[in-house]
Design a protein around this nucleic acid. Structure first.
Length: 300
DNA sequence: GTGCCCCCGCCAGTTACGTCA
DNA sequence: GATGACGTAACTGGCGGGGGC
């Protein structure tokens, strides 16, 4: 399915459609810090009221015919029953949620379905129960066609939540039940969040590795400096303090390459590694938080 | 203004089914 | 054909917000 595409989490989970958001959240999260924040987790932002924008595709020509040959997927799909066929979608100008005709629960889940079961036959009266060949108690699992998944995916890229009207329109367009669209979006959000969590974990692991390495290097340097302190030649040949450079992002101070510590150290100082010290700048670069593939925000 | 109840949407976790190796 | 792993549609229970009374 479409979720098998590469870069799911990187490209989708972070694409908070600010540019398309006609009704931005009242408290938008600040942009991810460049360096300063130690854990710039960019976790999934959910429940954002993106959905004031209507779905751009309103044409009815995109309604898919489930009887079309969708190869192996649809072979099993339509083997026994046609889960997509001829559902009675009630026109929903009043945003009335219709119940799932094929499910043991209605379009409302959990407690709400229990309430509906208690207060009558609302589900079965609003929609005809499908003649699915029996086993009304068992859960029927539908494999969405590639076209349906593609449309859902495109809609999700535009906005990761749906308002009732959009849900109904999309369900009608795809010849699905609104509950199915709703469930698909819920699961899609969960998958996106999971992917993002994996990315964040990997990033934190790299941060930990870098910090461990830096700590080890600094410990070594401390040892070396302590050894130097015991050597009188060190003081006699020491140059005056040299130029320091400061990282504009994290404000760390580093010795510039032309005046490295080694230049101030006597050549015969014991235990000195006279290799250039590439660490400071590389360490700065190493802890810059990861960016999503499609986020090319200029750093300020 | 406050509390209660109901509805609704979302989420985390789980289950069950379809597909594939 | 049987089987286990994996992906995912669907379900469940809980929570919080909004609205009516």
């Amino acid at each position: 399915m479409a979720e098998k595409d590469d870069g799911l989490g990187l490209s989708l989970s972070l694409r908070c459609p600010e540019s398309q958001n006609l009704n931005p959240p009242p408290n938008p999260l600040p942009p991810p810090p460049a360096v300063a924040a130690p854990f710039p987790l960019n976790l999934f932002r959910s429940s954002l009221p993106f959905m004031q924008q209507h779905h751009k595709s309103s044409s009815s020509e995109a309604i898919f015919q489930p009887s079309a040959d969708h190869n192996a997927e649809t072979r099993s799909l339509f083997r026994g029953i046609d889960m997509n066929r001829a559902i009675t979608v009630i026109d929903c100008d009043e945003e009335v949620m219709v119940s799932s005709p094929n499910s043991t629960v209605s379009s409302l889940s959990g407690k709400r379905s229990e309430r509906e079961e208690n207060d009558g036959e609302r589900a079965s009266s609003s929609l005809e129960m499908e003649d699915d060949g029996g086993d009304a108690s068992g859960r029927k699992k539908l494999r969405l066609s590639k076209e349906q998944a593609a449309v859902l995916e495109e809609t999700f890229k535009e906005h990761n939540t749906l308002n009732p009207k959009q849900k109904m329109a999309l369900a009608k367009q795809l010849n699905l039940r609104p509950r199915q669209v709703e469930v698909w979006f819920q699961n899609r959000r969960a998958r996106t969040k999971l992917k993002q969590t994996e990315v964040d974990c990997e990033y934190l692991r790299r941060c930990c590795d870098n910090l461990t390495e830096e700590n080890r290097r600094l410990q070594k340097e401390v040892t070396e400096l302590r050894a130097l302190k015991l050597s009188p030649q060190f003081y006699m040949n020491m140059s005056p303090p040299t130029t320091l450079t400061m990282c504009p992002q994290c404000e760390r101070v580093a010795v510039s390459s032309s005046t490295t510590t080694s230049s101030a150290i006597p050549a015969n100082a014991p235990g000195i590694n006279r290799q250039p010290r590439p660490m400071p700048m590389s360490s700065w670069a190493a802890i810059i938080p990861p960016q999503p593939v499609d986020a090319h925000r200029p750093r300020t």
